[in-house]
Design a protein around this nucleic acid. Structure first.
Lengths: 289, 289
DNA sequence: TATTGTATTTCATCATGACAGAATACAATC
DNA sequence: GATTGTATTCTGTCATGATGAAATACAATA
């Protein structure tokens, strides 16, 4: 009981979500069986999640009767994406390599030694870096970083690719955008514009940016469009996490996003699509200056 | 020495490739060191590959002097893609599931038992099926097949996606197509049209088709376009391997490909791009009849 | 009877060691 | 001196068993 599992944490969040969606009031009784059924897991991890919520004072066990809701939980910050355990290692290794503190060619054992990771973890991390085309297996043993010719060309190709997919995604017949999503995005962008700007906000800014583009890709109703953009975001995450945006760039970006949201709210998708095209073209030139 | 490694097989093929590229004649001496350097591996696997070639009567060892080329090897069939070891299992599992002989939800151990695979192999295979969105991890333990709603919608979304990417790829400024590739493709398509058609040719036909689209994607000079189409091919490979094409469909397909090749040979890319668009639109309707 | 409490079984991950193949170094031969 | 032959070291994969968590079955209680 000291450390809730990742599954248990996720379930706890999803239970909070269910409570909100169902509009339950204080005093309502939950029960493990129906939760387990709705969440498609067994009772065991649900118990763990409930215990976790109990420690937070959100529910209280009523022996043999159920679990009473004793406080309405408020959802955490707007859809904080659950940070993957391996992810921090991805970022760290990518950064270390860029800083030149890693050799161009490296074996799995060397990575294990340097970072104190076990082998399965190293293999997961390297596989994911390979998916992002940041490393590749060497023919014999070991791995090789690909960041030689990569950065310059990749940046352009990424934008060229997104220019093919994102504006068209908005025009798909299956495009459906949740109005509440638009509202949430508007609020996030408004906040970013008004809040005082720190260098340290660049990660948050990146994530908002990524969420905007991914959300529209998801709305296209085409899983391949969505998957492609998610992949692009993942790719950019590492090369841009410690990229220092000037505030002017942030302002321009938010304004362009807000403009698109305005048109999308009125279902003016042709215009939004054009704006997306121009937005990407402009953004692609930022770095190459 | 009974079984050459996969790496050794690959090296043997690449050595043959080098011999052809360099235009070496019978009697020429190869040496392990320079081959190892050019192939970016150590001498050990090169030795294995040479031994393999020796058994085929292509080279002969001259102790302490080198390895003599005693027969000009002819390249195997046009770019036969080295069939991945796991791949047959992917196909088999996908097929078994479609045939209904696998449960909707399944654990890794169950897969190990049914197919007599070891755990790492099962994990590789399931991961790849997950990349193709054919299965997903269940929250707790086990995996779930996604082929419920999948097939119908996926087919359409796949073509919608390719319609965004493939015609545009041809128009990219970085587009470069190797004339010899065009020639090879023409020959392949011509052969397919003339040869008598068997049901059993459908795999070969699929692969030619895939190679055509992948080749054009690669020519775009954009790695994301290329990766996206490779992914689409992989996806289609499983749902279409035992799809029975009527011969009329094969004829139409080849004619359309050949027409595109004609325009591409003259660098008439706008027209080729339009033809690609119509080709995909037409192909997308075949199955939904 | 509905629900939680408890015990048992099953599963996936990790740790460890064995093994085959690749990398490397050095000896032998022309 | 260049090349192959041979030995040694290093690396990654597989096999096995231990461990913790999830799934499942059954008992207990309101």
């Amino acid at each position: 009981m000291p450390q809730p599992t990742r599954l248990q944490q996720d379930l706890a969040e999803r239970i909070v979500q269910l409570v909100n969606d169902d509009g339950l009031a204080i005093g309502a009784l939950l029960n493990e069986n129906s939760l387990a059924r709705r969440l498609e897991v067994s009772r065991t991890p649900v118990r763990g999640a409930l215990q976790h919520l109990e420690e937070q004072g959100i529910v209280a066990r009523r022996p043999n009767r159920g679990v009473e809701l004793i406080a309405i939980p408020q959802k955490n910050l707007a859809s904080a994406p659950p940070p993957d355990d391996d992810e921090e290692w991805l970022v760290r290794i990518a950064r270390d390599h860029r800083a030149g503190s890693l050799p161009q060619d490296i074996s799995e054992i060397e990575v294990m030694r340097r970072y104190g990771l076990n082998r399965p973890a190293v293999q997961r991390v390297l596989s994911r870096l390979a998916d992002l085309e940041m490393v590749e297996r060497k023919p014999g043993y070991g791995w090789r970083f690909l960041t030689g010719t990569r950065d310059r060309a990749t940046h352009d190709e990424s934008y060229r690719f997104r220019l093919m997919v994102e504006p068209m995604g908005i025009l798909e017949a299956s495009f459906r955008l949740d109005p509440s999503w638009i509202e949430m995005m508007r609020r996030l962008h408004g906040d970013t514009l008004e809040r005082h700007w720190h260098e340290s906000s660049s990660v948050a800014f990146f994530e908002m940016n990524a969420a905007f583009h991914e959300g529209l890709a998801a709305a296209s109703g085409n899983r391949f469009v969505h998957a492609a953009i998610r992949h692009q975001n993942q790719l950019r995450r590492f090369s841009q996490y410690d990229w220092k945006f000037g505030f002017e760039r942030v302002v321009v970006n938010c304004r362009e996003h807000l403009e698109m949201l305005d048109y999308l709210a009125r279902d003016e998708r042709e215009i939004a699509s054009l704006l997306m095209r121009r937005h990407l073209e402009r953004a692609s030139q930022v770095r190459s200056e």
